[in-house]
Design a protein around this nucleic acid. Structure first.
Lengths: 116, 116
DNA sequence: CTTTCATATGAATATATGTTCATATGTTAT
DNA sequence: ATAACATATGAACATATATTCATATGAAAG
């Protein structure tokens, strides 16, 4: 007895084939989703937005956004790992800034849509 | 005895004040995060990407993306609620498409960054 | 009106994730 | 060395969320 594959009815085979050929690599799409996911948290988007205006240290971000130092630090870790922010050390203080001009562009594209 | 506010050390008061004044409304930022969150799931980003190429029905999306009909339908519900997709009915079949040209722009801004 | 088919939906489950708390790290000043 | 301070980190907890499963809805055909 065969194990049946859970088949799905396809109504428009041509469309499915055509779109399948035009779709980007799955890996790229997953990476894209992961990128957007990072933008998809209130604390992180606020950090990104703040860093568009000025380079800032952890405790300033913490005060500005009214979020604990630890929470900010954890989120900055995520932002570092995904290369959205970079940092420099000056004594005890660590200054964060956006890694790249393009990060701001992504923010803008979403923000504009919300404000339309 | 007073309840102390959990105060945070602020190092650069001027910067914090200035950025605070330049920041958009919190509501808008939260909405922006919510928008990006919708883009931040592999299945949903694939649906969005597919609908950039063609209008498609649920079972075609299901076949194309190799995701169950139910899962696709649940995700389309999310996409409908956030006004990223619209639909039209033709008999038993419901065709989905992107609600707005701008949706594709947002996708592109993230996709480009990944492919840079 | 009953069946068939495309889609939607609610409950349940497993997993992911954001924050807190306590503590560690690393730098500067005494 | 030691104290003070800015930041990082690990564990724990609570919440959010994506998928599955079973079933409901709604339209067309017989």
């Amino acid at each position: 007895m065969e194990i049946e594959k859970c088949e799905v009815t396809v109504i428009h085979e041509e469309t499915v084939e055509q779109v399948k050929n035009e779709m980007p690599e799955e890996d790229k799409l997953i990476e894209t989703a992961e990128l957007f996911k990072v933008f998809g948290d209130p604390t992180r988007i606020k950090i990104i937005c703040a860093l568009m205006k000025a380079e800032m240290c952890v405790c300033d971000l913490s005060a500005l956004l009214n979020v604990s130092q630890s929470a900010i630090s954890h989120q900055l870790k995520t932002l570092k790992q995904t290369r959205l922010v970079k940092y420099r050390r000056d004594g005890k203080v660590i200054y964060y800034s956006l890694d790249d001009e393009h990060i701001a562009k992504i923010f803008e594209s979403g923000y504009e849509h919300v404000c339309e």
